[in-house]
Write a protein that binds this DNA or RNA. Structure first.
Lengths: 143, 143
DNA sequence: GTACGTGCAAAATGTTTGCATCATT
DNA sequence: AATGATGCAAACATTTTGCACGTAC
């Protein structure tokens, strides 16, 4: 679906800043911070301020087109993908990397069934999905 | 174990500020922010500054006696519990429930090893922890 | 034309730092 | 005595806000 239509459906004004920001967010593989998004989009968009990036991201989150994810080190990260996926969080940088789709799927699919069943029973819920966050550090460095 | 011994084991100086902060963190049921902890401990501790709270929390995190958890709204929260825990998110309400510690541990411990290994190799990282978010709905209701 | 979005700069918030002093080992 | 922690205030980083102007509907 075209971004314009998507925006209209959610009653969002189609300003060039918002369109550009959303496109950039969708295109990015890592989960950018507001600042990173600003640096990427600014050159193309001409007039753009950081405040607009924050406003836009908040508007997108409010209608569910983006998600805000907290980090332990300062800035929040954003993500345009609407379906849940697993990721790795790097300890040193706070950076979040998506797992390759195939690995992500396998990881979730192979979660231990019997434990899930026990959780369902004990909490009285039906689990329909899962997301794994792996905590990692770089393998080759030692900081 | 007495806090003093715990600190000595981790090569942390036993200052009254640190001892009081750690005790307060351990005693708290919700996960306090640095600011909240400061307000609670200050009256007892006499001399105490917010900077010391941050320093202390960082020191505690470094040796694994506390954990820093990000939030989407500004300040980080801290927790004296040393192990990451998984949770269930309810689809309808957005509510997040911690898994019982024992189930949480088993779930993480039994994550498929070979997939983790493959992820480590492909991304060049060393995974040292994990956290699972299960997405669920109520088993008996249909809202 | 109106309602809402934008840019800018300034404020608010949360966290870190530099440095002189003080306490623990 | 030496090492490291503390308090204070100032610096820093991230995010939010107020307001005049501009743009999509």
């Amino acid at each position: 679906m075209r971004t314009r239509d998507l925006f209209e459906r959610h009653r969002l004004r189609c300003t060039c800043q918002r369109l550009a920001l959303y496109e950039a967010l969708k295109a990015s593989t890592n989960h950018p911070t507001a600042e990173e998004l600003y640096r990427v989009v600014k050159p193309q968009a001409g007039r753009l301020s950081l405040a607009t990036v924050y406003n836009t991201l908040e508007a997108l989150c409010k209608v569910g087109l983006a998600r805000k994810m907290p980090t332990t080190n300062g800035s929040c990260r954003y993500d345009a993908d609407t379906n849940e996926h697993s990721h790795v969080r790097l300890r040193e940088t706070g950076e979040i990397r998506d797992l390759p789709a195939e690995l992500s799927e396998r990881l979730v699919r192979e979660l231990p069934r019997h434990i899930i069943a026990e959780i369902e029973q004990r909490l009285g819920v039906k689990v329909y999905g899962a997301k794994v966050q792996l905590l990692a550090r770089w393998a080759n460095r030692s900081d």
